[in-house]
Design a protein around this nucleic acid. Structure first.
Lengths: 338, 338
DNA sequence: CTGAAAGCGCTTACAG
DNA sequence: CTGAAAGCGCTTACAG
């Protein structure tokens, strides 16, 4: 952080060249760490740069070099800790490889998503990692590919077309959760939370699969959609308890929904686990210390982010290769809620 | 999102100029929305741009224009929903005014913070919003000012020196929480969680103030530090219960810590609120639907983010004005935990 | 191993 | 109201 002293006119490579008595190409080369320059010369250049308080101008470098070391990531719901964990994993992996990440939050708003994507394009992003908002057009990956920008779609698949993707096996995961509840003796199990869309459909499918496996009938009155927020899930579980008193367990759309369910249960003096079972999905960090600790499906969110970064980096390396996918294999982690 | 068709060589203003039969200066002007250009001409230019699938190159514009419309924000702990909410508020306000935000996460790591700050500098950020990591040097604001980059420090004050700041009144907030507990009849109240540092010290001060107000003795064995995570707070409350059985209430460093406390209580079959009181701090969205709902000190996190943006924007407008501060006035919100 | 030259895509005085 | 020209700070062939 040591800045000698704020120069009036910021120093450029030309100033360094003058100071070090070399040409500016030489300066540029040593700044890039090229080994074309003799060590002694390089040392002199670096010293001059230091002395002048030189700051590398990445903008100029990118303009000329055509390269760009920035990656845009767009997140649809940062309020959900799952996405925050994905983001942290992604970012860690990316900055370790010298990229700088450029984040934007869409709040599940399609128009906003279009805007931020456009901005990233104008900034010449080297790649984009996207958690698409609900209702994104299936053609979005092709559109971005047409822009010539490498893309990885995260978490929420977009119908049709091929594109790089990092997410989890939703159907299998929820099947695991359902099977677990059935194994514990539950017979009337609700599916709670989430809004219809690609993830929701896959997870409900897992729920149906789990039920069928045990020869239990699927009753669509037992799937209760809601916004995937604590508040809405909390209210929805209240409905279930009132309307379907024979339900003894719920597999939840995700951990946030499950947390809402825990709150609704607690309010009624019900103990999650013994009085009513609830299963989450994601295994967000918080789920290990909720009240009570949440039984859930682990998809290792921050690892998922790292894999997404990996996939994107691979695509940047090889723009035309076949599409790559990372699907986290879900694992059941049993704690006390179910 | 309608891109006509991917051009081989991306179109530049020069191509547009040729297509529209004007000079490139004219194109530049209409792209900037200048009213120096006749409407008819402007329309022709825009049409040509559209036709050629033109994409504005912000990098080039910033290099030449010296302006930069990007703001860097560095967050120390995204895993804490408080910061996520602050970030969302900040980002919303910023993109509404045409800035693009550039996020980096430091994981409370000083070295990483230095790195990302440096990167933002090299990218020519128009401003920086910083939640400093614990242990940041007090001189950091001056350093960044010497770089010529407008700065707003968020949440965690840095000792000494003047700089723009957006945060909350920590001492007053915790005093409110403590007073509330005292009013409810508690006499042995612990302070739980957090690591020594500027925020911690201020909050413990509020705890002492609240105690003194009621003529209760401050007992330093009743302040239990911990990492501000659910897990550590959970474990720490276990310690308290074992070592100080006469403690009947805890004012927590923040909501995350309080959530950990709720988990520890629940595990022991204790009901937060009636068996043991816990007060949070922040009023994170989740606190309204925890189990049980958390009584806490509201500092309106996302509003805090918006105000931070405001302060930064004002500083960008007026680089040399006196320093600005936003201190959220804390309000007690009583739910069930205390 | 190093230098001279061209140019990335834009903006901004300066003329007219 | 529009055009010709210079230049932002860098990188990259091309020579030597």
């Amino acid at each position: 952080m040591a800045s000698s002293n704020a120069p009036k006119r910021p120093a450029t490579i030309l100033d360094i060249a003058a100071e070090a008595k070399v040409s500016k190409s030489t300066v540029s080369l040593v700044l890039q760490g090229s080994d074309l320059i003799r060590d002694e010369t390089a040392a002199r250049v670096l010293e001059a740069a230091q002395k002048l308080g030189y700051v590398y101008n990445r903008g100029a470098a990118e303009l000329r070099g055509k390269s760009s070391k920035t990656i845009g990531v767009v997140i649809n719901d940062l309020m959900n800790p799952f996405f925050a964990e994905v983001l942290v994993g992604l970012e860690r992996r990316l900055v370790d490889t010298g990229y700088t990440v450029f984040m934007a939050h869409t709040s599940e708003n399609l128009e906003r998503q279009d805007r931020v994507l456009q901005t990233m394009r104008e900034h010449g992003a080297a790649g984009i990692a996207l958690c698409p908002v609900l209702g994104s057009p299936a053609s979005l990956p092709q559109t971005i590919r047409a822009w010539g920008i490498p893309l990885v779609v995260m978490v929420r698949p977009l119908g049709g077309g091929t594109y790089d993707f990092a997410g989890s096996d939703d159907t299998e995961g929820v099947k695991l959760a359902t099977r677990h509840l059935v194994g514990a003796g539950h017979r009337r199990i609700a599916f709670l939370g989430g809004r219809p869309g690609p993830i929701f459909d896959r997870r409900v499918q897992g729920y149906r699969d789990g039920l069928r496996e045990a020869a239990l009938a699927f009753d669509k009155r037992l799937v209760f959609a809601s916004n995937p927020t604590r508040k809405d899930a909390y209210e929805r579980l209240g409905d279930i308890l009132a309307v379907e008193p024979r339900v003894t367990a719920a597999v939840c759309y995700n951990d946030v929904v499950a947390f809402g369910a825990l709150a609704a249960l607690g309010e009624r003096g019900l103990r999650a686990g013994s009085d009513f079972a609830v299963m989450g999905f994601d295994n967000v960090l918080d789920s290990a210390h909720s009240n009570p600790p949440l039984s859930t499906i682990d998809v290792r969110p921050s690892e998922l982010g790292e894999h997404a970064a990996q996939v994107l980096l691979a695509r940047i390396e090889d723009p035309s290769g076949p599409s790559r996918h990372y699907l986290a294999e879900p694992c059941l982690v049993q704690r006390v809620s179910g």
